[in-house]
Amino acid sequence: MIDVLTAKLSSSGSHKQDQNVLPVCALLEDPNDTRLQIDPMTRDALEAGSPPRRFDLVVSHLVLHHIPDLAAVFKIMFELLKPGGKVAVTDFEDFGPEARKFHPESKMEGVERHGIRKEDIRKIIEESGFEGVTVETAFELPKRVESVPGKGDTESGPTMVFPFLICSGTKP
C-alpha cells in the first residue's frame, strides 16, 4: 500500500518538494521511531536534539486486523499526536465466523483477527486516552469470496457484503 500511495503522490502533478506527506511502512512500537523523524518536505532526518515529530492526524485503512496488539498500537498512535490531534481508522467488522471469508485461505498469513468488533475497538481507543471516540459503520463492501475455503475461486465465488467500521478519537 505504501508503493500505491507513493505512486499516487508521484502522479498527482505536484513536485515531491511541495508535498507534506511522507509514506512510512513501520510497525509502530516507539513514538520516536527514526523512520517517523524525517521532514516530509526535505526528506532529511530531523536535527539531533530537535523535539520529536508529532502529528495532527493518524490514518489507517485495513491494517488493524493484521496487528497482534491493538491496545499497544493505539497507545503509540496517541503519543504520536499533538494535543487536539485525531486518529481515524477503518477496517472490516468482525460480524461472526463468516467474517473469516474476507481473506482467501492462501492469504491468511499475517491475519491476526477477522475484522474488528465495535465494542472491543471502542474500549481500546478510549483506554488509550482518546476522547470523543466514535465507532460506526461507514460503508459496506460487496466482495467475492471463495466458495469453499482453500478453493481459490475468488473471481467466480459468491459475493458477500462486509461492513466497514470507521473509528475516530481526539487526543485531549
Rank of each mutant, 00 (worst) to 15 (best):
I125W: 04
I125E: 00
I125L: 05
E126A: 03
E126M: 11
E126Q: 13
E126V: 12
E126F: 06
E126L: 11
E126N: 03
E127M: 04
E127F: 00
E127N: 15
E127G: 04
S128L: 04
S128E: 10
S128I: 05
S128H: 04
F130T: 02
F130I: 11
E131L: 14
E131Q: 13
E131I: 11
E131D: 09
G132A: 14
G132M: 14
G132N: 14
V133N: 05
V133E: 03
V133D: 01
V133I: 06
V133S: 02
T134D: 04
T134S: 09
T134I: 02
V135G: 01
V135P: 05
V135K: 04
V135E: 01
V135W: 03
E136V: 03
T137K: 12
T137G: 01
T137L: 01
A138P: 00
A138K: 15
A138Y: 15
A138M: 13
F139G: 00
F139P: 01
F139Q: 01
F139T: 04
F139I: 04
E140T: 10
E140H: 15
E140M: 10
E140W: 14
L141Q: 14
L141P: 02
L141R: 14
P142S: 15
P142D: 11
P142I: 11
K143F: 10
K143C: 04
K143A: 03
K143I: 09
K143W: 12
R144F: 08
R144S: 09
R144I: 02
V145K: 10
V145W: 15
V145E: 04
V145M: 08
E146W: 05
E146H: 06
S147C: 07
S147L: 13
S147K: 15
S147R: 09
S147W: 10
V148E: 11
V148S: 08
V148F: 06
V148K: 15
V148R: 11
V148I: 13
G150T: 04
G150I: 00
G150H: 05
K151W: 02
K151M: 11
K151N: 14
G152E: 02
G152K: 05
G152D: 10
G152C: 08
G152T: 12
D153V: 13
D153H: 08
D153E: 06
T154D: 08
T154H: 05
T154P: 06
